[in-house]
Design a protein around this nucleic acid. Structure first.
Length: 379
DNA sequence: ATCATTGTTCTTACGACGAT
DNA sequence: ATCGTCGTAAGAACAATGAT
């Protein structure tokens, strides 16, 4: 229905209502139905300008259904979280961040109500309330990801999460131990965990990988430990083993000959029975988990006089640093640590086991030179 | 190369429960 | 009654992968 008089428009129409104000109507590009614009205009000129803008939006593919953003945020967020295919642990975390920090503020309104200004103030309040920066960053990233999907769904035109620097934070350097300090901790901790500390440092396995080790994964003669899986822990405490994601995750790492006696001793006294028995178990024979390891770690850390900031995971960095000192190349280190390199290596290169053995041997030399007395003590 | 996103580990707190 | 262990929950911190 074009204007009766004057210039014919090819797009939409304007008409004057009984009130005297001007209404704009146009074809909804999705339904093909004639729909009135959101508001009316004082003058015919204003109405025609508005119509031009709408047409331009549609032409550019930027037109968004004004009603679409009217989706309840909480409902949309729930569906969004549900439909993502994520690892259980990631899902858990996303759900808790959403539930605790995002939905309480935005949940009641609609998707379109989330404006940049509100996002900024929400973020500031979280920080002011004492929520840690990593968590605030996490919450922001999550909200942004959700709003990105809303953009894809054409609920909103553009993502309101556009606060510079809000999606990252500075990560401080981690402490690194000397060989002497590694042994200091190893001999300060409960004996059943001594090998755990040593392997963490000298094979640079992760806690989850160490916790998943079975007797059969240790080759004393070959001085190898085979990493076939990692133990993961859900927030609800459920433990499960995960296969490594990449070829690099499934790997064999050499350990220094200086650890052989320690390992034999451990196998004899502490490891669970059978080839499938866990190498490391809790005080009562249960599976090793963070909660039942933590107290021992803290005590050992204190007794050994190392930084109270030292995380178990820092042993891995320590081992990495030591291995680097022992002459490992970046490539070799990555292999040893179980990193894949999607960038550089199109084809996964196997480091020769000879090379890994050499690195382990040099680590052994460090143990001998640095800490021969400690290895003999306290057993 | 850089940024976006996903994944893993560490910290703190508390309650249940059986052993001492 | 107290203690050690274990399980659970929430939050914080750190690391790696994947997409531009």
């Amino acid at each position: 229905m074009a204007n009766k008089k004057g210039r014919r428009r090819s797009f939409g129409s304007c008409r004057q209502l009984a009130s005297g104000r001007w209404q704009v109507r146009y074809r909804d590009p999705q339904t093909g139905l004639l729909r009135p614009a959101e508001k009316t205009y004082e003058t015919k000129t204003d109405a025609q300008v508005a119509l031009t803008h709408i047409e331009a939006d549609i032409t550019r593919g930027q037109w968004a259904d004004p009603d679409a953003g009217d989706v309840n945020f909480a409902d949309y967020a729930t569906a969004w979280l549900r439909d993502r295919k994520l690892a259980d642990r990631t899902r858990e975390r996303n759900e808790s961040v959403m539930r605790l920090h995002v939905v309480p503020v935005f949940g009641a309104g609609s998707i379109a109500d989330v404006t940049t200004a509100r996002v900024r103030s929400w973020r500031g309040k979280l920080l002011a309330a004492g929520v840690g920066e990593p968590t605030v960053v996490k919450a922001y990233q999550l909200l942004r990801a959700l709003m990105n999907t809303a953009v894809d769904d054409e609920l909103i035109r553009r993502n309101p999460c556009r606060i510079k620097g809000a999606d990252s934070y500075d990560v401080p350097e981690r402490p690194v131990l000397s060989v002497a300090e590694v042994f200091g901790v190893a001999y300060a901790i409960a004996p059943r965990y001594r090998l755990l500390v040593l392997l963490a440092a000298f094979t640079t396995l992760r806690f989850g990988e160490l916790a998943a080790l079975r007797r059969k994964d240790i080759d004393l003669n070959g001085r190898l430990v085979v990493v076939r899986r990692a133990q993961a822990e859900l927030q609800n405490g459920r433990l499960f083993d995960k296969a490594p994601k990449s070829a690099a995750g499934l790997r064999t790492v050499s350990f220094p000959a200086e650890l052989v006696d320690e390992i034999s001793h451990h196998l004899k006294h502490y490891a669970a029975d059978g080839q499938e028995g866990h190498l490391f178990v809790g005080p009562q024979g249960g599976q090793l988990r963070r909660s039942n390891f933590r107290d021992d770690w803290i005590k050992a850390r204190k007794a050994a006089g190392v930084s109270p900031k030292l995380h178990f995971h820092d042993l891995r960095h320590t081992g990495n640093t030591l291995a680097s000192t022992a002459g490992a190349s970046t490539r070799e280190l990555m292999t040893r640590m179980g990193h894949s390199s999607s960038r550089a290596a199109l084809i996964y290169q196997h480091m020769t086991s000879d090379r890994d053995r050499t690195i382990a041997d040099r680590l052994g030399a460090m143990i001998r030179n640095g800490e021969g007395d400690l290895t003999a003590a306290g057993d």
